[in-house]
Amino acid sequence: MTKTLKWLAVVSTICMIFVLIGGALVTKTGSGAGCGKSWPLCEGKLLPSDITPELIIELSHRLVSGIGAMIVAVLSFLAWKRLGHIREVKFLSFMSIFFLVLQALIGAAAVKWGQSDFVMALHFGISLISFAAVFLLMLLIFEVDKKMDTSRLFIQKKHRIEIYLLTCYTLFVVYTGALVRHAHASLVCKDWPFCTNNAPFAFADFRLDQWIQMGHRLAAAVLFIWTLSLFLRTLRYYKGNKVMFWGSMTLIILIFFQVFFGAMVIFTTLNLGIALMHALVISCFFSLLCYYVLLSGRCASNSTVKTKRNTTDLEHYAKS
């Protein structure tokens, strides 16, 4: 059963990647209305006769999302049933299904009734949380045979808090990036990293879409500096720990690629492949951060248990 769960977890994670990239593809190609105002059918039919590229993209995304939802549901059920004794499994099983359904409902509402750019920008972040939950569930399943044993890992409290804050801030940066796409602000600044457009730089002359673009760039710059700072301190405090060292190394590589692809989106005037890579890299970055949130939670729990044991021992010693 463990082997079956592993394969199912890997397939579910791959499906969720396609769901994420498919959603980004729909947004970047403007294919959200490819099936008209009909959902889950397309133009009120299972297969419309008038086939357009936008229809193919939107219908394919719906199909992949539906298949992915069924596979994730099976994974969540089996993981809950077989590995429910592991404290994070039930929570992650629920999260993966809940946020997958939530993002589908938001997408359906946008098709049927339309939504503002600020609401639709939530869509990618919700999908990202669902993907991260499935990804963590996969890692927990692979931990069962102790080949990925992290039980001895200790993360200092101040660094645990920083990991929590950095993860939440990453979601905020993701939201601002999604807002750039939905507000059609991707190319309102022709240069990078500033927004001069071959004119004197003046904040007072910015339009709303330029403020959205530059707000995202500023938020992304803070994320880059924060990640770099955390990486350097990880080398100092955890240089002997492989999980912390290689994890932080992967994070810094991902954030470098994220900044690179973000700049290339501007220089290539919104090349579709580069834009999709931009979405994929931040998804991997956020999911890895979530893994460290999970490890931090374990460390906090272990510290609490250890403190209670020490208190109990001291009380017993005082009574004796």
Rank of each mutant, 00 (worst) to 15 (best):
A219D: 06
L5E: 00
S229W: 15
R152E: 11
G297R: 04
A73D: 06
S49Y: 15
L289D: 00
L122P: 01
F131V: 01
S229A: 12
I14T: 10
K306C: 14
A110D: 12
S76I: 01
V173K: 02
V10P: 01
V180Y: 00
P40T: 12
L102N: 00
I225N: 03
L166M: 15
I17R: 01
Y317L: 14
A183Y: 05
L251V: 08
A178L: 14
L230T: 05
F201Y: 15
L232C: 11
K6R: 14
N198F: 11
A73G: 11
F206A: 06
F224C: 04
I252A: 06
M249Q: 15
R233C: 08
L128S: 04
R87Y: 06
P200Q: 06
I129K: 03
C189K: 05
Y292C: 02
G36Q: 05
G215L: 01
L83H: 06
A219L: 11
K147T: 08
T27F: 00
C195H: 01
V119M: 14
A104L: 11
F245H: 05
L208F: 13
G66E: 07
A300W: 12
A24G: 10
T13M: 09
S116G: 12
I86S: 10
L294H: 09
V243A: 13
L46P: 06
T2Q: 10
L280C: 06
I67F: 13
K45Y: 13
E315D: 12
I255S: 05
A109H: 02
S116R: 04
A185V: 05
K147M: 07
A104F: 10
